[in-house]
Design a binder for these strands. Sequence first.
DNA 1: TTTTATTGATTGAACGTTCAATAAAAAAAT
DNA 2: ATTTTTTTATTGAACGTTCAATCAATAAAA
Lengths: 214, 214
Amino acid sequence: MPKVGMEPIRRQQLIAATMAAIDEVGLAEATVMRIARHAGVSAGIISHYFGGKDGLLEATMRQILTDLGNAVAARRHALGDHSARAHIGAIIEGNFDRTQVTGPAAKTWLAFWASSMHKPMLQRLQYVNDRRLYANLCHQFRRLMPRDEARNAARGLAAMIDGLWLRGALTPEGLDADQARRLAYQYLDQLLAHHSQRLQAPQTPIQPTDTLST
Amino acid sequence: MPKVGMEPIRRQQLIAATMAAIDEVGLAEATVMRIARHAGVSAGIISHYFGGKDGLLEATMRQILTDLGNAVAARRHALGDHSARAHIGAIIEGNFDRTQVTGPAAKTWLAFWASSMHKPMLQRLQYVNDRRLYANLCHQFRRLMPRDEARNAARGLAAMIDGLWLRGALTPEGLDADQARRLAYQYLDQLLAHHSQRLQAPQTPIQPTDTLST
DNA sequence: TTTTATTGATTGAACGTTCAATAAAAAAAT
DNA sequence: ATTTTTTTATTGAACGTTCAATCAATAAAA
């Protein structure tokens, strides 16, 4: 089987196998042997390409974060409408993207969330990603409201997104992405309602059954 | 040291030591020896009182869920005002209770969230707790709105609570409980605003500090 | 003296890593 | 075209470590 130029192929295989193994039995029992078997290779190869198990786990988390970043960036670039609401919508959509919501990715994500609290390298990755989400949201909200309120809105929406995600991952039936999107948009529109220069009123990618306001 | 009637004492010590160990080094490295050392006892005692490490972990998760249940129940019983908003407020307050927000409890909680996906017993505990939160919220919202909307509101608020929790646990500085409460209440009031029989308007247990702009 | 609680050395299983051996492809030589 | 050599990728058995569980020995209370 040894062909030249295997490195990128094997790396991808092993990262995918890692997610599959975590999906199957959890991080605690995702041994190098199980991961290797999933990828159809031997255990030793992991140390060869990633320097060890930790290296593979780090690479896997990087992959997940990169996927999320791409999912968001793609939707923001495809935006016709450059309103704040549209940008924030793209962030929501990106976070509930197919690749992210899938069983393996969701469980892997949650496993890394938990273990990042005690592994400095993973913590760093998680932190950077977190700040990026918050900063993006904050920047968009800032276009419609004063700074302190924008910060609150960003914190609230970030929490809502993560919360929907978390509960989706924990639910045996998996995340209902449509329902999650709907709830996130509904919350977003409530946040924006008070500050709508009327330019900016409910634009409805999704109609939250609106309401004649207070 | 052997006195009679040690069992309940040791059990409590060991459960507390488990949370402390998880807080310190994470579930993956919370070995029986480390936990035992934390409690000032030997490793063997764990199997003696809990039948094994798994038994101790299960008991620890049960403890955390019980603490949460008590925190909520206490606040609901202490309620003067029996409005739906007051009840939901008690649920929010209970979830951001001191004993829950503390470092050890928060990290232990997250660790169990992750591992409950692959351990049927923990999954069962987590699921029951989850349904209870949802059912309680749903029941209270139902007093103010039609069923489908009540369900959405309950799902949204549950996600918001868990999301704030999660992000608090992941943040290096820990959860800012006051800020979390404020955001949860703000969201709650937005949910209720559309349905307020005028009895029910913003009652402000917490003032969202509103902002002098910029 | 009996009962109860606790210890800690021991055991066996499981893990990640290593590395000499191997096999396949690519390159060079014929 | 064929053979030989070199390079690259891969294997899997062996090693050292770490862990949870066990249980005979022990020490304190009753």
